[in-house]
Amino acid sequence: MIERVWQSRWHPLAWLFWPVAWLFGLVTALRRLGYRRGWLRSQASDVPVIVVGNLTVGGVGKTPLVAWLAGYLQDQGLRVGVVSRGYGRQSRGLVTVSDGQRAEAEALGDEPALLADGGLPVAVAERRSDAVAALAPSCDVLLADDGLQHYAMARAAEVLVVDGERLFGNRWLLPAGPLREPLRRARHCDLVAVRGGGALGLAAVRRLLPGAAVFQFDVHADRVESLSTDDVAPLHTWAGRRVHAVAGIGLPERFFNALRRAGLQVQAHPFPDHHIFRPDDLAFGDDCPVLMTSKDAVKCRHFGDRRLYQVSARVEPGPGFREALNAQVNRLRTLVSTP
């Protein structure tokens, strides 16, 4: 329901919420002004922090992009860590995972746990600056998964992630629209990464953000991996098979449609974003395989259910994206080498 409201400026509820959105925008502008003028303090770090975030609420593919960026930076010879608030975790305070330790989603949150499973040092804290301070001594650069609006954490660069299909909705602020900050905020970001949407989506974002460094990437369902054995197979080899598909992500239909495009017969089971799965959630009364995203799998791998599989994702950067990143990496190297 709310998605339909946020996609149109003519929906009655959008107009009903507009006065509240105006007040929200005023508070947001005053808060940002406070940090820009120095009335509110940002916590600086000894190492550069790259924030990967979005202006809209809902899932746009930040975490897969963070994982890809981390690998890219590591290939450049940099030691990379990830910081996050750890949304949905059942712990409090600062929690860190490093040296390939097995991460538990209950302690870190599902998205940080997924990143830690890839071998990255990860720290979560209510105050992201605390997480930054914990990892800074052992890293050359830190990636903040979300946190574009967390101005208490100083940053060296910002990567704005945009959904190439939904774009910025009706371009109104919460609660009349999906924006956390006005659209003009995007002009201050170093890179704008548009997920999917094809040529039309890329052109639309460039039209809305003239002068911004806008590039495209996409996330493709790649492999099917068992959660209880070493079985791994390309997704296309599952074509024709009947499966249950579960997804506790921002846009479950994106996952279900990816499986359908690969030729699978999908019985879809959407769950709320960051849902904490229990074995009963996956009891569908038959022995058909149950496929899920990697983000959901970190919460289900201890179930010991041989029906469960995760579908891993592959990030594909579009033309010019790597070259733009190279320019940012060269700038960051200067910051890393500055005493």
Rank of each mutant, 00 (worst) to 15 (best):
I2F: 14
I2G: 06
H11E: 03
L13F: 13
W15L: 15
F24D: 06
T28I: 10
R31I: 02
G34D: 04
G34I: 01
R36Q: 15
R37E: 06
G38P: 10
W39Q: 01
W39S: 03
Q43Y: 02
S45R: 02
V47A: 08
V51W: 00
L55D: 02
T56K: 08
V57T: 11
K62A: 02
V66F: 01
G71M: 07
Q74W: 01
Q74C: 05
V80H: 01
R85T: 02
Q90T: 08
S91W: 09
R92G: 14
V97R: 13
R102H: 11
R102Y: 00
A103Q: 06
E106H: 15
E106D: 15
E106Q: 15
G118F: 12
V122H: 00
A123V: 00
V124C: 08
E126S: 10
E126A: 13
R127S: 09
S129V: 07
V132G: 01
V132K: 00
L142C: 08
L142A: 08
G147D: 10
Q149A: 05
H150Q: 08
A152Y: 04
A154E: 11
A154I: 07
A156P: 09
A156C: 04
A157G: 05
V161L: 08
V161K: 04
V162H: 08
V162K: 09
G164A: 11
R166F: 00
N170T: 05
G177S: 03
L179W: 06
R180L: 10
R187I: 01
D190V: 05
G198S: 08
G198I: 02
A203T: 07
V205W: 12
V205K: 15
L209E: 06
F215G: 11
Q216H: 15
E225F: 01
S226Y: 11
V232H: 11
A233S: 15
T237G: 07
G240R: 03
R241P: 10
R241G: 02
R242D: 11
A247N: 10
L251Q: 14
P252Y: 04
P252Q: 01
P252I: 02
A258W: 05
Q267V: 13
P270L: 01
D273G: 07
H274K: 04
H274C: 05
H275E: 13
H275R: 11
I276Y: 07
F277W: 10
R278L: 10
R278A: 13
P289N: 03
M292K: 07
T293D: 12
S294R: 12
K295G: 12
A297Y: 13
K299R: 13
C300G: 05
R301P: 11
R301L: 07
Y309P: 09
Y309W: 15
E316W: 09
P317R: 10
G320Q: 09
F321L: 13
A324E: 14
N326S: 09
N326V: 05
Q328D: 09
N330K: 15
N330V: 14
T334W: 04
S337R: 15
S337L: 10
T338H: 13
P339L: 00
